[in-house]
């Protein structure tokens, strides 16, 4: 579903290597957790997958489509929730969702069903007619998630999706992620909450200083030490690499 091959990205004219030769294959039907310390390169990697940033080298393939050669088909395959919540504040929530519906070609009847479902699920249906400017941080996050889920794309890419969500919404989103994968689709998300990654993910990738230092299921990451928590594994790996 998602294939990164030798992907690199530098800033400041090559002086800062944000992502360093990452190769990764996320399979169909799995929840993949992408974890790493602040500034490790998680958001840069995600932005390259979504087409916001261009890799300096390497290739990215989504659902069989190369992001560089076939960007529209690749983008049609993803629903993206960024970590910054920057969204057209002068539009109402419903106008924004309609905009996304038009862009992704979601039919009116399907749109009604999905918009109603997610707005009610996240308890923001009453605010749908209000300007986004009046939304709280959490409400904006819920709206962005609703917008990403609206076209039902095969790959969800979520950058810190649980930040700002209340416990109930957080639980509902996790359930939705699981259901999405059970339907044969894929979720790729970054998080700082290691407990969530530990409980939710089928496989986990750990990135540090732009390099992918470990990939695998929790058991694979544990290796011989079957009782270790992800937190402990994370600190052992990042400290030894750092």
């Amino acid at each position: 579903m998602l294939k990164l091959t030798n992907v690199s990205k530098s800033y400041a004219g090559g002086k800062v290597r944000a992502v360093d030769d990452i190769t990764l294959h996320v399979k169909r039907g799995e929840i993949f957790g992408f974890i790493g310390p602040n500034g490790a390169g998680k958001t840069t990697t995600i932005k390259m997958i979504c087409g916001i940033l261009q890799p300096d080298s390497g290739s990215i393939e989504i659902n069989g489509f190369d992001v560089r050669r076939d960007p529209i088909q690749a983008k049609k395959s993803i629903g993206y929730v960024p970590d910054n919540h920057e969204v057209y504040e002068r539009l109402t929530g419903l106008e924004y969702l309609n905009f996304i519906g038009d862009i992704y070609g979601v039919e009116s009847s399907v749109r009604k069903e999905r918009v109603s479902k997610y707005l009610e699920m996240f308890e923001i249906a009453d605010a749908a007619g209000e300007r986004i400017k009046s939304y709280s941080h959490g409400m904006k996050q819920k709206l962005m998630i609703t917008a990403a889920l609206l076209p039902q794309p095969p790959l969800w890419i979520l950058d810190e999706p649980l930040t700002g969500l209340d416990p109930r919404s957080s639980m509902l989103l996790k359930e939705e992620m699981r259901k999405h994968c059970e339907a044969g689709f894929t979720v790729f998300f970054s998080t700082h909450i290691l407990e969530v990654a530990e409980r939710l993910c089928d496989r986990i990738g750990i990135i540090q200083n732009g390099k992918l230092i470990a990939v695998g299921s929790l058991d694979e990451l544990r290796g011989q030490k079957s009782n270790e928590t992800l937190e402990k594994i994370f600190f052992e790996l990042t400290e030894s690499e750092g």
């Binding site: 979504c50 960007p71 529209i72 983008k75 960024p82 057209y88 992704y104």
Partner: peptide, 8 residues
Amino acid sequence: WLSKVIPV
């Protein structure tokens, strides 16, 4: 960012 992400 949205202009770069949407499939248009």
